[in-house]
Design a protein around this nucleic acid. Structure first.
Lengths: 240, 240
DNA sequence: GCGCGGTTTCCGGAAAATGGAAGCTCTTAG
DNA sequence: CTAAGAGCTTCCATTTTCCGGAAACCGCGC
C-alpha cells in the first residue's frame, strides 16, 4: 500500500529532520520490519537517504521534485527580489504564503533586522483565520472553503483573536474591498501584520505577502500601501 | 507497489510540471487505470494536486517535505545572504550546488544583471567533471565516487572540455591544494566558472559555490579570492 | 559472556494492486 | 443533430505483492 510509505514520510517534520528506523516506525505507527522494507525502497529511489550514522533524512530527489511544485519556485523566485526590497525598506519581517485547503503554508520568509520574532517557519502551516496572509487568502478562497472554515471551530491565540464567524465575515469583506488585511494582535499580543493579495495572469489570488511588525510601532495604513504596492509588483512580474 | 508511484512522480520534470493522466501513464509506462488509481491516492495525501483543468502538478505537501532535505534549507538559507552579497559585488551568476551520487545538483542560483546566460536551473543536474562546482565536489568526494566517475565515460561539451582521466586527476589535485576550481570554457565556449568548497562543522565538504563569468572578462584569480572568502564565510555560518 | 537496543532477514498467509473492458464526458467533425 | 474520437473514470476477477511475527544479527557497555 502506498499510504504507508507516505505515512512514513509524514513522520519527518521541522523538528525531526533525521530519524532512526525505530523512531520512524514508532511515529508512523507500524511494525519495524514493515518500516524497514518501505524505507529501503524509498532509499533506493532517492526519496530518502541514509547517513553513515544510520539516520534517515529526506533525500535530494524529493527536494528536487518538491521544487517543481507550481507555487514553489515560479512564485517564490519571482517574488524573492520584491520581498527583499520590502525587507530592506522596512527592516521588518516579510512573509510569502499560499493557501492549501483550510490552512496557510508559508513559502518564504525574510527576517527583518530589528523585528519582532515570528513563530512561523518556511514550510510551516497555520490557521487561515488569524494571520495577515491567512485573512487575505481566506477572503479570496472559494466559497466552500470559507464556509468550511467559518463553520468549523476557530482557534483562538490571544484575547484579541477574532473567533466570531459573523465578525470574520465582515473582516473578509473589508479585505476584499480594501485590497489588504490587518491582523492586529490576533496571533501574539505584540505583533501586527498587514497582508495583500498576489494575483496570477487570470486575476486569481494565488498567494499573499505580509509585513509583520511590533504592535504600535507604525500605523497599519502606511504599511498597507507598501505591502499592496509590493504585491502588485509581484503580480505583474508573475504575469510577464 | 510503491515503485510504481515513484515512477509516476518521476514523470514530472522541469519541462513537464503539469501532466494529464494519459501523459503520466505514457511517461511512466503503465496502464491508464493503474496510473489513475495511484494518482488518486497521491492526490488524497497531497503529494500531487489536480487543477480545475484536470492537469496534475506536484503538490505543496511534497514541496514541504522536500524543503526538509538536510541540504535543502539549512544550507540554502544560511548561504543565501552570502550568495546575494557575492552577486551584488560582482553582478555575475552565483551558484550553489551539492553532489548526489555522480552528479551535481544545483540548490540555488542567482542570476547576475549583466551576466552570461547559464544553462543550469535550480534543481537541475549536471556531470561532476565540467563545471566549477562539479570539480570542487568531485575533488572532495569519496574515492569510490571519483573512481566511478573517472573510470566511466566522461561527457564532452566543448572542444576544451577535459575528458582525459589522467589530466582530470591532476586538476582535482590542484583543486584540493588551491582551495578553488577553475572551469575554463569546459561547459560552453563563452563561460568560465570558479568554484570553492563549503565545509560543515566536521570539515567535510558538503557543498560548493561558484561564480560564472564571461570568458576573458576578468582574471580567474581575482574571482577565486572572492569565491573562497564567500565559501569560508558560509562554512563558518553553517558551523554556528 | 551476557543482556540490551536497534537493525536486518525470512517466509507463509492474507490482502491489496493490477489492468482489461465497459461506461462516461466533452470536443470536434460530418 | 448524430457520430466519431480522445481522454477520463469505474468495475471486478485474478494474481501478485505486501504484511508483520519471529528469529537471527550486530555493536556496545557492563
Amino acid at each position: 500500500m502506498i499510504g504507508r510509505a507516505l505515512q512514513l514520510l509524514g513522520a519527518f517534520d521541522a523538528e525531526h529532520r533525521e530519524l532512526t528506523l525505530s523512531e520512524l516506525a514508532r511515529r508512523a505507527d507500524m511494525p519495524l520490519s514493515t518500516a524497514h522494507r518501505l524505507m529501503h525502497e524509498l532509499c533506493e529511489w532517492g526519496a530518502v537517504e541514509r547517513g553513515g550514522d544510520g539516520l534517515y533524512r529526506i533525500g535530494l530527489r524529493l527536494w528536487e521534485l518538491g521544487s517543481l511544485a507550481p507555487r514553489g519556485p515560479g512564485l517564490r523566485e519571482t517574488a524573492l527580489p520584491f520581498l527583499e526590497d520590502l525587507s530592506l525598506i522596512t527592516r521588518e519581517n516579510v512573509q510569502l504564503a499560499v493557501r492549501e485547503g483550510t490552512e496557510v503554508v508559508f513559502v518564504e520568509r525574510i527576517a527583518g533586522s530589528g523585528a519582532v520574532p515570528v513563530l512561523t517557519r518556511v514550510g510551516g502551516r497555520f490557521a487561515l483565520t488569524a494571520t495577515g496572509v491567512g485573512l487575505v487568502l481566506l477572503a479570496h478562497a472559494p466559497v466552500e472553503v470559507q464556509e468550511e472554515v467559518l463553520g468549523g471551530s476557530i482557534d483562538r491565540y490571544t484575547e484579541r483573536t477574532v473567533t466570531d464567524p459573523a465578525q470574520l465575515r465582515r473582516m473578509l469583506a473589508a479585505v476584499r474591498s480594501n485590497g489588504f488585511s490587518i491582523s492586529d494582535r490576533q496571533v501574539t499580543m505584540d505583533a501586527l501584520s498587514v497582508g495583500a493579495p498576489i494575483h496570477d495572469r487570470r486575476g486569481q489570488v494565488v498567494a499573499a505577502v505580509s509585513l509583520v511588525v511590533r504592535h504600535g510601532s507604525t500605523t497599519p495604513h502606511a504599511l498597507a500601501r507598501l505591502v499592496r504596492t509590493s504585491a502588485q509588483a509581484i503580480s505583474r512580474a508573475l504575469s510577464a
